[in-house]
Simulated scan of single mutants.
Amino acid sequence: MMREYEEIHSVEELEHWKQGTQTLIYVSRENCSVCHALLPKVQELMEDYPSVRFGHLSADDVEEAAGQLTIFSIPAILAFSEGRELYREARFIRIDDLDHFLSKWTASSD
């Protein structure tokens, strides 16, 4: 099974998302084959972390939000807690590294 994500459509929505307790945001572009190949793997992994809010931001649709996050390469994955960025991985994203971070992060909030 793959976990569904919520689309982020504006800078205002992004700001709201960043203020959450445990938020993971996946950033991609339409013409990025790596982005499209990686997303299902991230969705599958996120099945194990139901407490983490999971969002998707298209850098094509909301360019100013990608700029605000200072994203220079995609795909990118960022984790936020109450406005603080706690994790960032871009271009070469390793699922096991993300899994390791998520398992420590979610365990520490119990």
Rank of each mutant, 00 (worst) to 15 (best):
M2I: 12
E7V: 10
E7G: 00
V11Q: 02
E12N: 06
E12H: 05
E13N: 02
E15V: 14
K18N: 04
Q19I: 03
Q19F: 02
T21F: 08
Q22I: 13
I25S: 08
S28M: 05
R29C: 03
N31E: 04
C32H: 03
S33P: 06
S33F: 08
V34Y: 11
A37I: 05
L38K: 01
L39K: 13
K41N: 06
K41P: 00
V42L: 14
Q43K: 04
L45G: 08
E47H: 09
P50H: 07
S51Y: 03
V52N: 08
F54R: 04
F54D: 01
G55I: 13
H56M: 12
H56Y: 12
L57I: 01
S58Q: 07
S58Y: 02
S58W: 02
A59L: 03
D60T: 05
V62M: 01
V62H: 05
G67H: 04
G67F: 02
Q68L: 15
L69F: 09
I71R: 02
I71T: 09
I71W: 10
S73H: 14
P75G: 13
A76M: 11
L78M: 15
L78T: 10
A79L: 15
G83N: 11
E85N: 07
L86C: 12
Y87H: 12
Y87R: 07
R88E: 06
F92R: 15
I93C: 04
I93V: 05
R94T: 08
I95P: 07
D96E: 15
D96I: 08
D97V: 12
D99T: 11
D99P: 00
H100D: 03
L102I: 00
W105I: 06
T106Q: 13
A107I: 09
A107G: 00
S109Y: 14
